[in-house]
Amino acid sequence: MATCASIPVTIPKDGSLTKAMIKDIVGTFLTKEWPAVDPETLVVTYNTGYANTNCIVERPKPKGDTHSEPLKVFLKIHGELDGEIEVFKHLVPNKQEEAQLCYDYGQSGLGAKVYGFFQTQDGAFGRVDEFLDARNLQPEDVEDADIRADVARAHAAFHAMATQREKNPVQPYYDAVTRELARYHKMDKLKRLANEGGVNMDELVDYDFVSRIGRVTDRLESIGGKKGWCIHDVQLMNVMVKNRPKQGESKVILIDFEFVFQNYRGFDVGGHFLQKMFQWFDEENKIANCRPYTEEEKRHFCEEYAKQWNETTGDSDTGEQVFMESELGVMLAITFEIHNMLCFMDQDDDKDPLSTLGLNKLFGEFVSQYKKLGLES
């Protein structure tokens, strides 16, 4: 159980903790060697993202290089907006629930261990996790059959993972996303912002996503689409590839569970296939310069996924079943991305042409897939 420890520190407004604070936080959970470390000897590498502050903390090797506790840990301070798009706030895990998901995933042997979950005096939440000697998944990685299989098995195991969080129905998510997409439908402000940025997005804004999402979910229900703990934010950056995996263990680990709630598993599987084509944090182009997943690669992924799902659940699903679900789920994943980007565009008056070009690419993928599956009839 991931219990929350109270830490008597206050986070500076710029998010930069002193080394003494960091030592006190880590030493609360790793109690044998870390409390005796001279804080000035710590090496702290910060990585401040959109809504949270992450850092890698390393202590010196002790004399004789014998130690019972890790030399490196990963420290995360949750920002106020971390994982919170207002319309989904009732669905996403709170910080305690997210910590529990991470803890359960770590306890399964598949993810990073959670050493501790804490709250500071000023109300900020954070975690101390195992440091992963790993790098972000790259588009070319999933063209390697072994890595692709490990990514498939990792998703299947996570989707079917036993956790203490209550399984809620999926419909509240679709009620929320369709209500918001209906609000953005034909919104002149969005068209104007896109055009001011030099990109025409009128066709996307005028498109009726709401009725089409209903047809997609109806089709998923008709084929018996399974549900699980979907991550939703399945961009490639949220899969880590180990630099030195041990023989027989998975080469990959999933990270970032701020958006985990129950949904059709095809949402994440199809979303993973889609995300190979995008690089959302690139400053020059949001569309990746790589080829899409081939059908052969998708089917191989789905076969490996089904094997792991069946091993975890006792079901007897086929790769073909998972593939059919992913073909529908990719459209649900696209509308999730489109909603979120339109939301930020509306709120922040964003007219970045790189974002609108990415939106038009997502729109084209949706229209193509919807036609391919004959859902208009």
Rank of each mutant, 00 (worst) to 15 (best):
G79C: 05
M21W: 00
G126F: 12
A306T: 12
K61V: 15
Q235V: 05
H272K: 09
F344H: 01
A99Q: 04
S108G: 09
V73N: 00
K72T: 06
T31F: 00
E40L: 12
F257Q: 09
F281N: 13
S326V: 04
M21V: 02
E297C: 04
Q171W: 07
A20F: 07
F336M: 03
P39W: 09
Q171N: 11
I231D: 02
Y370V: 01
A149C: 10
Y46E: 14
T45G: 00
R127T: 14
T312E: 11
V57A: 02
D218C: 03
I334A: 03
F117C: 08
N289I: 01
E58N: 08
L17S: 11
C290W: 09
I253T: 14
V252E: 10
Q119M: 07
V73R: 01
G49S: 08
R219Y: 07
T294C: 02
M161S: 10
A36R: 08
T318Y: 01
L328W: 09
Y103W: 13
M341H: 13
F131K: 04
I147L: 15
V87F: 11
A306I: 03
K286I: 04
P39Y: 10
T31D: 06
C102E: 15
E249V: 13
P39S: 11
I7S: 00
G270S: 05
Q262C: 11
E304L: 07
C230S: 09
L274I: 01
F88S: 10
E283R: 15
M240N: 01
F88Y: 15
L193T: 08
R153M: 12
N136E: 15
D202Y: 00
E303K: 15
E325I: 04
V57H: 05
T313D: 00
A333I: 01
G271C: 07
G15W: 13
V205M: 11
D133I: 06
L42Y: 13
L236T: 02
E40W: 06
M187W: 05
A333H: 12
R59V: 02
R59A: 03
V92H: 10
K19F: 10
I25E: 07
Q107M: 14
S355Y: 07
G248T: 06
Y305E: 11
Y115P: 08
Q164D: 13
G319Y: 00
V37P: 00
A145W: 11
H272G: 02
K186D: 11
D202A: 14
E365H: 05
F273K: 10
V260Y: 09
R215H: 14
A156N: 10
A36I: 01
T53W: 04
P139M: 10
V330H: 03
K371V: 04
Y46T: 12
L30R: 02
R192G: 01
K276G: 02
S6I: 12
E258I: 10
R192D: 12
Y105S: 05
N52V: 04
Y103I: 01
T294F: 13
N136C: 12
V37S: 02
Y103K: 10
I255R: 07
E327W: 02
R192C: 03
A99R: 06
L359G: 03
R212W: 09
V177M: 02
P353K: 05
F88E: 13
G364L: 01
I22K: 13
A156S: 13
L236A: 01
K298Q: 15
N52E: 07
D349L: 05
W309V: 03
